[in-house]
Design a protein around this nucleic acid. Structure first.
Lengths: 345, 345
DNA sequence: TGCAGTGGTTGACACGTTTCATATCCGTGC
DNA sequence: GCACGGATATGAAACGTGTCAACCACTGCA
């Protein structure tokens, strides 16, 4: 098959160890041998066998990243951040898409364990499988992404989603909205639950109760399910129909926006929309979307750095929580004046 | 470190070969030994060492996918198709983002070669590096994705982009548009050149010359550069300003749409827009985007299948070309009647 | 009793690399 | 002339697995 280090050595007329030295400590080798070895490498088209290196080294130069939905640009942005750091460290990233399905997730974790990855970055499905513990017990560093660690002994990079939910709700209430819908999800992801909790808290603080908060919980968080939720909202009697919608992510929000427009409901005049994540498409929507911004790429970078740091034995586990920022755009701009009118009425 | 097959053997009181047999040919092993081995595996938390398997086998159970832009949903859809097939074949996918930069591309190809991947799926940067040939010479199967093979001896899965460009242009011309802009790219990707060529061909057929076709060539194909192009278009004097824009991909189209809307140019009444790829966000845009559909996921699947087939030695190289389909949506719906008025005027 | 056959099991070997203790060479200072 | 040290070069050992020829115990048959 392909040439090995031994073939190179023979061709260059040196020993096997010398070739290895040329590859790994070129300065410890005389110019003459080095040149002959390099020439032989070129002639034979020699390529290092990474498996053999790994076997010898006991660990690979790879790192696993498991995401919930590869089609969600939030995760591709995170991935971009991760691979920046990984590239600099000379590591390859194996990107796995669990599709929010525990079965796929655990299959991928097995695979990553067999690959002896240096570590795993994961946004886990709801029930943070015991699988993760078993990985850690085996000494594989794990860093949670967009999900707060439940206990100590683990690193995580997350966002204060309760605050995020609160920001969104406060903004809309301050704008004069009195009936709000929250479009979340039913898969039980804590991130989503917390966003919901934040909205509920804000609503309670301002209104005393949450009677005017309608909650929708589609099974997955996609553009398509966002459209479905919007269709339901549009179908509600005008007297109780929410005048604003908070979505648990931007995909849902885009779906809601599209369906509203399709039904002739003007955004933001008749219905305001707030998304979550602030993916690039949020700003690019024809009615630019107000959204709760998370430092997507930065989260990926930071998570990868934590993972690498975990190799050092003086490592202290860190749980980083970013503060989200509400980015106000057109989709929630109207209503203040009319709302005040309503309030005094 | 972690337990090896040898530890398991000792623990189960069997030989090393028996453990291997339990793992690879369970039926050739007596029930008793099998159970004891499985028990030992569970107790020790044994996980196969993939590097060692690879070293022994000479090849990995991995496959490389190199894309131009991980942030473009077109490629994540392709990736989804690829991993479907890969999963079924028990292969892992290493997803690499070249960012349309030859340097990154070739670094990743080196990496994949060192990993001894079973094959590489790639949408290459413009100058289909000699790197690819060197891979093939080394016996690594390569399948081109969204890019037609230049010669025989290689597999590819592509789309007839000349036809795609033609469809878009014909549609707009038939709708009555007489001044069209093409927003492409300057990186020299053949896919883009062909789309351009298709548009030019259609325009020439219908108008005799291409004086009324304005071409923009931003350096990258993103939402941001789409906005910039639109800003230029909007700034043109009304008498020469195109009434329709064909974009080389949907990201550009979304950018154009947003900027048009921002400037109060109504889409499609004052300016029609046609995108390319038909990513999900195209339909979800507030003015749903007319776009040239490619079978994104199917392309990924098919490419992966071709790659796997290339292992068999009776394999004949195949160059698959899909026919794109124009999906007409709101962004290009208006104008027929007014256009006819204009024409007669 | 001997022999062929069978279902299980064994352990040495090979895969390609890195590492490390050891060997070689050459110049320098005493 | 000799000991010493620095710069290079060497090759055996080890990493964990899969394979395969050899082996074993046992059965059925002649």
């Amino acid at each position: 098959m392909s040439a090995s280090i031994r073939d190179v050595a023979r061709r260059a007329g040196v020993s096997l160890g010398t070739v290895s030295n040329v590859l790994n400590r070129p300065d410890q080798v005389s110019v003459g041998s080095r040149e002959r070895v390099l020439a032989a490498i070129a002639e034979l088209g020699f390529v290092r066998n990474e498996s053999a290196r790994q076997l010898r080294a006991g660990t690979s130069r790879t790192l696993g990243l498991v995401v919930l939905d590869i089609a969600n640009p939030f995760f591709t942005d995170v991935a971009r951040g991760v691979s920046e750091v990984a590239d600099d460290a000379g590591l390859a990233v194996i990107l796995c898409n669990s599709d929010d399905r525990p079965a796929k997730e655990s299959a991928y974790l097995d695979l990553l364990a067999e690959q002896r990855v240096q570590g795993v970055l994961i946004t886990p499905t709801a029930d943070l499988a015991p699988h993760l513990d078993s990985l850690r017990r085996r000494g594989v560093p794990v860093v949670l992404v967009d999900r707060r660690a439940t206990g100590p002994g683990q690193c995580s990079v997350a966002v204060d989603d309760v605050l995020g939910g609160r920001l969104a709700a406060d903004h809309l209430i301050e704008r004069g909205h009195r009936r709000i819908a929250f479009v979340g999800g039913s898969s039980g992801l804590p991130q989503i639950e917390e966003r919901h909790a934040g909205v509920v808290a804000a609503v309670r603080d301002q209104w005393g109760d949450e009677d005017s908060l309608t909650v929708f919980a589609p099974d997955v968080l996609t553009v398509a399910t966002g459209r479905e939720a919007a269709a339901q909202i549009v179908g509600m009697p005008a007297a109780v129909r929410p005048t604003a919608v908070i979505c648990a992510n931007d995909l849902l929000a885009l779906g809601v926006l599209q369906e509203m427009t399709r039904h002739g409901v003007r955004v933001p005049e008749e219905c305001a929309i707030v998304g979550y994540d602030d993916i690039e498409f949020a700003a690019a929507a024809a009615v630019p979307l107000t959204s709760v911004r998370k430092p997507r790429q930065e989260m990926g970078r930071r998570a990868a750095e934590l993972l690498l740091a975990e190799a050092g034995d003086d490592h202290v586990h860190e749980q980083i929580v970013y503060e989200p920022v509400l980015v106000v755009r057109e989709s929630s701009m109207a209503r203040r004046s009319t709302a005040q009118g309503e309030r005094t009425a």
